[in-house]
């Protein structure tokens, strides 16, 4: 286990690359860091944003990194050099970015503010050349009707994205037409705070301030599993190769000072994916956990907290050996 201390303010999102050797972290201190996941050594930074970096994503080849920030920009970076390759500017802040499966497109959500509606745009990433030649215009753009979107991701179906909303809604949109294909208005009772796809992109897990996390079928938005905790959740991740989900959260930062440290519940909780039972907790943060990511091979996980720390925990052998519920085979 190692604790990284490269951020001065609270973490907003962390991501492993496809191989899992690198960990990208972004925070409210305007800087994106990249670390070696196995020892916590910092490899480099991506500097240039002029406001809280809300979101990052990395393409499957670990060539390009996209970031969305409060300075109303979406930036494309070269992972290897740390150079900013292209900047898109919008009227409002970028709250969420995500690559598609192939790394050819990026979807981003911009904030609803100052008379501007919440917008979802899809950009094609031109991988030819050095990556600086990008089209300024999105290939698709639409304004989702109703509650604003907070999180989004591509699905495997062409032009279909899945979104989580402020109202707790989870929906499928056709980006080409901007039409809502399907929706589950009552997926959650409060803001959807995180959405992470399964390895094969056929299901996803969402977390919400309503203190629960849910697994959804991305095809028909059916809720497959529900994990109910006693604290607002900021992030939920799926553990590959083991039947667990990882949940993180805690009292709102503004309420933390009014309660004792231990009442904040700043622990990463492990729940059994199929039985919906809590199986364990990992302590460590001094503030709420804002974001969790699991290594693609499932050998370690990282959590980023309101306290400005990223903690990387490597699973020990007993984690892989343990069969707390007997010999039932669970398909990933």
């Amino acid at each position: 286990m190692s604790t990284d201390c490269g951020h001065e303010r609270s973490l907003t999102q962390i991501k492993f690359n496809a191989e899992g050797d690198l960990l990208f972290t972004c925070s409210k201190d305007n800087i994106i860091n990249v670390w070696y996941s196995h020892n916590g050594e910092r490899l480099g930074t991506y500097e240039g944003n002029n406001g809280t970096v809300w979101t990052v994503d990395v393409d499957p080849q670990t060539k390009y990194l996209v970031s969305g920030a409060a300075d109303n920009t979406l930036r494309l970076w070269a992972v290897a050099t740390g150079k900013c390759l292209f900047t898109w500017e919008f009227p409002t802040a970028v709250k969420r970015v995500a690559f598609n499966e192939a790394g050819t497109q990026v979807v981003c959500i911009t904030e609803q503010r100052m008379g501007h509606q919440c917008a979802i745009r899809v950009f094609a990433i031109n991988q030819e050349g050095d990556g600086t030649k990008q089209s300024k215009e999105p290939i698709f753009m639409f304004n989702p009707i109703g509650s604003k979107a907070t999180v989004c991701a591509f699905t495997l179906q062409p032009h279909i994205i899945i979104t989580g909303h402020e109202s707790g809604k989870v929906a499928l949109f056709n980006v080409k037409t901007g039409e809502e294909v399907d929706s589950n208005e009552r997926a959650h009772g409060d803001v959807v705070t995180d959405m992470q796809m399964s390895k094969d992109w056929t299901y996803c897990i969402t977390s919400s301030k309503d203190k629960s996390a849910r697994i959804h079928d991305t095809k028909n938005l059916m809720v497959i599993k529900t994990f109910t905790t006693e604290t607002p959740l900021n992030s939920a991740a799926l553990a590959p190769s083991r039947p667990y989900v990882l949940l993180g959260g805690g009292q709102e930062a503004m309420n933390v000072t009014t309660t004792s440290l231990r009442q904040g519940k700043f622990e990463t909780r492990f729940w059994h994916k199929v039985f919906e039972e809590e199986v364990g907790r990992v302590k460590g943060h001094f503030g709420p956990i804002n974001t969790i990511a699991v290594h693609p091979a499932g050998t370690c996980y990282a959590s980023g907290g309101e306290d400005g720390f990223v903690r990387v925990h490597h699973f020990d052998d007993s984690y892989f050996r343990a069969k707390p519920y007997g010999d039932l085979e669970i398909i990933e």
Partner: peptide, 16 residues
């Protein structure tokens, strides 16, 4: 638990 796993596995097999 067996039932839960069976249901889960059936759904996963279908999607796969």
């Amino acid at each position: 638990r067996k039932r839960l796993v069976d249901e889960w596995n059936a759904w996963r097999t279908l999607r796969r």
